[in-house]
């Protein structure tokens, strides 16, 4: 596997006249060709500082970053821009520039002083447009576009820069779920189809777990963990990293539990896979533990035209037409038991 970006014993942080403030220490990692890596971790773990340092925008306190073997801090800015591009969280406003003109700015490090675009430049821009699926957007002014469309254009611009590595810092932070999924899909395509190496820092655990080839997990004050999402889940790294934050990561579902203490257990009986899954989600949300072979049961039954839920325990039996009603009744019951 071809290593594009190599981070060696990197310590990030800030220096002032009096002191050094270390944010993350002794980081070692590699980014391979054509790989999409998500950097995740709780707020304050130093993701942004690490991203800035890796992208060469900030000097490290110690250690080195190599871009295809060359020390990144020794590459002049214009040369570096040809090899590494950035997308940031900030919402850009670009006056009256059209989306096409913004993507064309990706050619900035490649063009001469006048910024004149050659036929070749236009072809590369067009490729970026098509890669991003932004054909419909290019003629519109950037100021008319939604936040999601703008970020898509900014990603296309970073792609048009023809870098070896793309670094994206929390670019989906302000977007809604469909837009986040869209950007993630776009980045996956860019990595797999054109061999770009992409490093994306994100808060979106779910998308990171589903979309990245590998994850760099950086816990607060801890060491960087690297692995495929599934490996990190199975070996408990995920759980351990977030437990210190007071959050429970459930290995089975690959998501976070809101409740951690249960005062009631039920078994779920019957139903198809989907119904079972969502009924279980509802139980967990209500703080009810789902276990096999408990006397208290939720039975999912189907008649010809509708589904209903039956709650059964030693002395009760009642049917509900929706999960909502079931949860309400269970909550009532728990209150009564508590009294």
């Amino acid at each position: 596997m071809e290593t594009v970006l190599q981070i060696k014993n990197l310590t990030t942080g800030y220096t002032s006249k009096q002191s050094k403030a270390i944010v993350t220490a002794h980081i070692n990692a590699e980014l391979h060709k054509g790989e999409l890596v998500c950097l995740i971790g709780p707020n304050g773990a130093g993701k942004s500082t690490l991203m800035r340092t890796i992208s060469g925008a900030q000097k490290p306190l110690n250690g080195e970053v190599f871009l295809n073997g060359q020390d990144i801090y020794s590459i002049p800015p214009k040369q570096l821009a040809k090899r590494l591009s950035l997308v940031l969280t900030e919402r850009v406003s670009a006056g009256m520039l059209s989306a096409y003109e913004v993507i064309a700015l990706g050619r900035y490090p490649h063009t001469n002083w006048s910024g004149k675009l050659s036929q070749d430049d236009h072809r590369i821009i067009q490729e970026a447009v098509e890669m991003a699926g932004a054909q419909e957007l290019v003629d519109r002014s950037l100021s008319e576009l939604s936040d999601g469309e703008r970020q898509k254009i900014m990603v296309a611009r970073a792609f048009a820069q023809e870098p070896e590595v793309m670094i994206l810092d929390e670019v989906t932070a302000f977007l809604d779920l469909p837009r986040r999924v869209e950007i993630m899909k776009l980045l996956r395509n860019m990595a797999s189809q054109s061999g770009k190496s992409i490093l994306l820092s994100t808060h979106d655990m779910d998308l990171a777990l589903r979309g990245s080839d590998r994850i760099w997990l950086i816990p607060k004050g801890g060491d960087l963990h690297i692995g495929s999402p599934e490996d990190l889940v199975l070996n408990g790294t995920f759980e351990a990293a977030f437990r210190s934050e007071g959050i429970n990561f459930d290995r089975q579902s690959g998501s976070f539990n809101i409740h951690t203490e249960y005062d009631l257990s039920v078994s779920i009986v019957g139903g198809d896979q989907e119904s079972i899954y969502w009924t279980q989600r509802a139980m967990e949300r209500a703080g009810i533990k789902v276990e096999p072979n408990v006397n208290t049961r939720v039975i999912i039954e189907n008649t010809e035209d509708h589904q209903f839920w039956k709650f059964v325990d030693e002395d009760h039996e009642k049917s509900f037409d929706s999960i909502h009603e079931l949860v309400l009744a269970l909550n009532e019951r728990r209150k009564a038991v508590a009294v």
């Binding site: 040369q79 940031l88 490090p109």
Partner: peptide
């Protein structure tokens, strides 16, 4: 026009 940070990332001094 894209802001200082982006301009810098594209190699502008």
């Amino acid at each position: 026009l894209l802001g200082e940070n982006y301009a810098r990332s594209m190699g502008m001094s």
